[in-house]
């Protein structure tokens, strides 16, 4: 099994690498299209800003490379958001994999934006969540969200109900950080490696 992590101008890639190590997996961190295309599975992580990251990906043609992946791909947090069609952040056209627009959290019910902290994941579907209980806690850091739609395979409530996990064909995305979500997150990463594909 050869895992690849997409290297681009977003933070937090190191944390993903360490989390994989803890569950006994290794990965190449690369922006080389050939290495990415030939990997068995790809992780597209990130903490960043939408317009500058899309610009960076386009300049290197990585936007097309990612959208054309045939193997299982897991987008994490900002990576998942970039896999949607559009983000309100910087009014940015994104990769268009999930037909969903990413919007800023409305400040309702006394919430603080960004959401920084642990929250629950519900309505879990697909084998990505095998062995994970409903209402399990994961760690979130984000200001923008994807609404609930046809690709939703998990939801979370923060002022409103939104998609905290998406799935379409070979593409998967989670809004939280499994690499920072204790044993629940490790299980999700393990499921992606062992059960998806």
């Amino acid at each position: 099994m050869r895992l690849a992590i997409v290297k681009y101008n977003a933070g937090n890639i190191q944390s993903v690498l360490y989390a994989l190590e803890r569950i006994g997996a290794t990965a190449d961190v690369t922006d080389n299209p050939e290495l990415l295309k030939s990997a068995d599975k790809v992780i597209f992580p990130g903490v960043g800003e939408a317009s500058s990251s899309m610009k960076y990906l386009k300049e290197r043609n990585l936007d097309k490379v990612i959208a054309d992946f045939k193997q299982p791909v897991l987008g994490i947090c900002f990576g998942m958001q970039l896999m949607c069609t559009h983000s309100e952040e910087g009014n940015t056209e994104c990769l268009g994999i999930f037909e969903e627009k990413v919007k800023k959290f409305p400040v309702v019910n006394g919430i603080k934006v960004p959401q920084i902290g642990w929250n629950q994941i519900d309505n879990l579907q697909t084998s990505l969540f095998d062995g994970i209980d409903e209402n399990a806690f994961c760690y979130f850091v984000h200001s923008y969200y994807a609404a609930i739609g046809e690709h939703t395979i998990g939801t979370t409530e923060y002022g409103i109900q939104y998609s905290s996990a998406l799935h379409k064909n070979n593409f998967w995305g989670v809004q939280y950080h499994p690499e920072k979500s204790a044993t629940v997150g490790e299980k999700i990463l393990k499921n992606f490696i062992e059960k998806i594909g």
């Binding site: 360490y18 989390a19 190590e21 803890r22 760690y139 690499e179 920072k180 044993t183």
Partner: peptide
Amino acid sequence: IAHHINIP
């Protein structure tokens, strides 16, 4: 430390 912890 970072290698050994799975929380923020």
